[in-house]
Design a binder for these strands. Structure first.
Lengths: 205, 205
DNA sequence: CGCCGAACTTGCAGTGACTGCAAGTTCGCA
DNA sequence: TGCGAACTTGCAGTCACTGCAAGTTCGGCG
């Protein structure tokens, strides 16, 4: 079951173009602003035809802030694989922490993305939206593992809150230039969550 | 300070066209699907010129799932108006509960919207995104009232989590046909939040 | 090795979202 | 009553995005 990705030449090429498009989009937008860049230019910068851009991304925003398509399924699978007696929030924390670990590897990429998000607040909306797929997948997995109907309030709530916390942590790590390890920030966010979001003690810092 | 809205003829007209456009968009999309409806048709159904549509909404999605522009500022103001010694989460709960109360009035509208969201999962992304403005406003207000820098993790986290919970509650109330009062659902969501998202006891329901 | 089918890329042509601009029109107010 | 501001509208243009129908590249099997 390990090589879910066959990693053939084809696969490697696909990943590489996808990445090239992502980077092209991010750098161009970082330099010229969101409306100063067309999809054609992005495609050109990544050395593919304009049409191909849309074989990889649903749109400009998706290229900038979207998740890779396999992520949702992968994380959902990891969630179902967690021990059955683990508390929901702990299971979610473990899954999202694993995700955070993968993020930490590609820090240049994420810094660039943070800069772009900073400069274009409108994209934060798209970012929140791009996690909708992930939320759906995780909610379904969590409901299943809890033996609850997928329309139940709790699983949806726990997932929405957890991914929301992770996203906020990513934003925070990004704006602070990743001076603190991202995983630590995620950990802190989940600690606060599990404690019921108490007011932080250190009010004068 | 009360009449923030002068409620002149002009204002009333504006609100009415905005509402007409919203309803037109929702009903048309409910009937013909997202891609079966053009902005021109929406404008026609609301008896305004195609161009005018864009004076009210940033796009089709905004008309379907966006918040009215004044909401963010209003809720932020209410947040700053809460007693200074109130715990952050309690203050947020109060503000969002007040919002929930206003929603409950217009239940037909929100049911229609829920139906549309159900049929077009893609719009849930847009919905999450549309609250980005609200999140920013609330975060700034909360940070100020806590005397924290606006880049601090806690305020952003608390707000993201709280609005996320409220949105989930709205989704839940919508999919269950508003059989339970929306405010109650919001209340329950916040209870769960404050308790640190413990696994619900009732596992076999 | 050579070949077939599947996957991927590309160009093309078309639809519709969205924008700035420059009139017109309506409303608020003195 | 009349002036200025706000709002509406039409127009023309740019660009995002899509389906389709070739071409091209890759994976695997005989």
């Amino acid at each position: 079951m390990d090589p879910v990705v066959p990693d053939s030449l084809r696969e490697r090429k696909k990943r590489s173009t996808r990445r090239a498009l992502r980077l092209a989009a991010l750098s161009l937008v970082a330099e010229h602003g969101l409306d100063g860049v067309t999809t054609d230019e992005i495609a050109a910068a990544a050395d593919v035809s304009p049409r191909t851009f849309f074989n990889y991304f649903a749109g400009k925003e998706d290229a900038l802030v979207g998740n890779d398509p396999e992520v949702a399924g992968q994380l959902a699978a990891e969630l179902t694989a967690r021990p059955a007696d683990e508390a929901p929030l702990d299971a979610l924390r473990a899954v999202l922490d694993a995700y955070a670990a993968t993020v930490s590897i590609d820090e240049t990429f994420w810094s660039l993305r943070a800069r772009v998000l900073e400069a274009h607040p409108h994209l934060r909306a798209a970012l929140a939206g791009s996690s909708a797929d992930l939320d759906r997948a995780l909610t379904e997995a969590l409901a299943r593992r809890m033996g609850a109907p997928p329309t139940d309030l709790y699983p949806a709530l726990a997932v929405a809150v957890a991914t929301s916390a992770a996203r906020t942590a990513l934003w925070y790590a990004g704006t602070t230039g990743f001076t603190r390890p991202f995983r630590d920030v995620v950990g802190e966010a989940f600690d606060v969550l599990a404690a019921g979001l108490p007011a932080p003690l250190a009010l004068g810092r």
